[in-house]
Each structure stands twice: as structure tokens, then as C-alpha cells.
Computed example of a mutant assay.
Amino acid sequence: MATITIKVDQEVAQLYQEADINKQEKLKNLIKLFLKPELAEKSLSQVMKEIADQAEKRGLTPEILEEILNEEE
């Protein structure tokens, strides 16, 4: 695994440093997804729509997603 540096404002840096390991991992996964070659040329809204469409096809409802997101808090 490699380490990279991303410039963010002080508030974001502090929030990340204070976040629990689960939230930090979720952010790392989101960045990894966003930078994949097949997604890199698309806008964030296009990527989010595609992810939502795929999740819906697999049976993920907004209610289930909310439950999953709240379980690790």
C-alpha cells in the first residue's frame, strides 16, 4: 500500500483525524472508487448515479443503506 497527500482545509483534516477507523476506511474506499480509470473521466454526479443504479438492481433500498450507514456509528 502507498501513502499519498491530499490538500484539504484545516477543518476537514481535523475531522478526518478525529474520525474512527471505520469512517476513515470508508473515505479511503470512496477515493479509490472515484479514481478508478473507468470512473475517472466521469463527473461525481454520474458516478454516484451509476453506483445508486447498481445498488438498486442488487436490492439495496434507501432504508437498508441508512441502516448500514448507521450501524457503524
Score class of each variant (00 low, 15 high):
Lys36Leu: 14
Glu72Pro: 04
Glu18Gly: 02
Leu39Cys: 10
Leu15Ala: 12
Leu35Glu: 14
Gln10Trp: 03
Ala40Glu: 12
Thr3Phe: 12
Ile31Phe: 15
Glu25Asn: 09
Leu44Trp: 03
Val47Tyr: 06
Tyr16Gly: 00
Met48Asp: 15
Glu18Leu: 08
Gln46Asn: 04
Ser45Trp: 02
Arg58Ser: 11
Asp20Glu: 05
Asp53Tyr: 04
Tyr16Cys: 00
Leu69Tyr: 06
Glu63Cys: 02
Val12Lys: 05
Gln24Glu: 01
Met1Ile: 07
Glu63Thr: 06
Thr3Ser: 12
Ile31Pro: 01
Asp9Ile: 01
Ile68Tyr: 12
Ser45Thr: 13
Ile6Gln: 00
Phe34Ser: 14
Lys36Arg: 11
Glu25Cys: 02
Leu33Glu: 08
Tyr16Arg: 01
Ala2Ile: 15
Gln46Cys: 02
Ala2Ser: 10
Glu67Tyr: 10
Ile4Thr: 10
Gln17Gly: 13
Glu67Pro: 03
Gln10Ser: 11
Glu63Ala: 08
Leu39Ser: 09
Ile31Val: 13
Met48Ala: 11
Leu44Met: 07
Leu15Gln: 11
Lys26Val: 09
Glu67Asp: 09
Glu67Val: 06
Asp9Pro: 05
Phe34Val: 05
Ile51Gln: 10
Ile4Tyr: 09
Ala55Phe: 09
Phe34Met: 14
Glu50Cys: 03
Ala55Lys: 09
Gln17Ser: 09
Glu66Ser: 07
Tyr16Phe: 13
Val47Phe: 03
Asn22Glu: 08
Glu38Cys: 02
Leu35Gly: 04
Gln14Phe: 03
Gln10Phe: 04
Ile51Trp: 10
